[in-house]
């Protein structure tokens, strides 16, 4: 039983970080029909911002982390939208998808070339203390990761539903033409979405890298998991991405412990296939009709 609890809690901890990246997927999709296949690299890069600022430039870690979040908002949010999404968007979804795949490869190779292909140690925000619940060893970092990730998503949900700007962003996502008629500055709202995605990616990066180590290839795993989580939960719902992320974190742990370590990566794919067959809109997603 203690093993079950431990697997559940550590699965929820990593799952909540997957959820941050998955929420970013859904936000960009809702706001601009952008499927960002560089999302994994967006989660990988901020850790290197932190390392560059702290190790190379000598900033203290407590300062390097918020600076890295700001850099991510500017580079992975604003610059990404201006340089990649805006020029490609008018050519349709597929060219944009290909552009983000290319961007992901570029980011990965840049880190490899300019920083190092080797994994790098990354400082943890939290003490490594452990306490026991029902015989299961629960670590402070697991609890803290879960709390911060969930807190971020809840804060985002509150921002979107309770503030004027948030509601304008939702209106833009649901029907940009009507939103524009109602006086919403839809370009600005879409830009806000990209900025938020940059921040979510940076938070996910800072939380997960102490365990994964900072490495150029981290985005391969994270991008795939976040994409599957977004589809499983529902690509057009933030709460869907949240559920998808948590589910994947737990399923990954349980499958490795109770099914097979060798096939642990296959189970999320099986889950994806089953969801697509049984409920194509995802667990909490809503069906979308499009004119073709």
């Amino acid at each position: 039983m203690s093993e079950f609890i431990q697997l559940l809690l550590s699965g929820l901890s990593s799952g909540s970080i997957y959820a941050l990246a998955a929420v970013g997927f859904t936000l960009l999709w809702q706001a601009s029909q952008t499927i960002n296949f560089a999302q994994g690299e967006f989660v990988m890069i901020p850790a290197f911002f932190v390392l560059a600022l702290s190790v190379k430039l000598g900033f203290p870690v407590w300062l390097a982390m918020p600076l890295a979040i700001i850099l991510s908002v500017l580079i992975l949010g604003a610059l990404f939208k201006r340089l990649i999404v805006e020029p490609m968007h008018k050519h349709g979804t597929i060219p944009l998808v290909i552009a983000t795949i290319a961007l992901g490869i570029l980011l990965k190779e840049m880190v490899k070339e300019f920083y190092s292909p080797l994994g790098q140690p990354f400082p943890s925000l939290f003490p490594q203390d452990v306490f026991s619940i029902g015989g299961a060893a629960i670590s402070i970092p697991d609890i803290a990761n879960f709390t911060i990730a969930m807190g971020t998503i809840v804060a985002l949900q509150l921002f979107l539903s309770r503030t004027r700007t948030g509601r304008s962003m939702q209106a833009t996502a649901q029907n940009p033409d009507v939103a524009e008629i109602l006086g919403v500055d839809i370009k600005r709202m879409v830009m806000y979405t990209f900025l938020i995605n940059g921040a979510l990616a940076a938070i996910a990066s800072i939380l997960i890298t102490p365990v994964y180590l900072a490495k150029f290839s981290n985005g391969e795993v994270l991008g795939l998991v976040a994409f599957i989580a977004a589809i499983v939960g529902g690509f057009n719902q933030i709460r869907g991405a949240l559920v998808g992320g948590l589910l994947l974190g737990v399923v990954d742990n349980f499958s490795a412990a109770y099914f097979s370590s060798e096939y642990r990566q296959a189970l999320p794919m099986i889950l994806l296939i089953v969801i697509i067959l049984v409920r194509p809109q995802g667990l909490l997603g809503t069906s979308e009709g499009r004119t073709v």
Partner: peptide
């Protein structure tokens, strides 16, 4: 007897198995 994969990043389940 716990096998792991090359480039594996998450060892939570593996450590839990060893612990129990």
């Amino acid at each position: 007897d716990v096998p792991t994969e090359q480039a594996q990043v998450d060892f939570a389940a593996d450590v839990a198995k060893l612990a129990s």
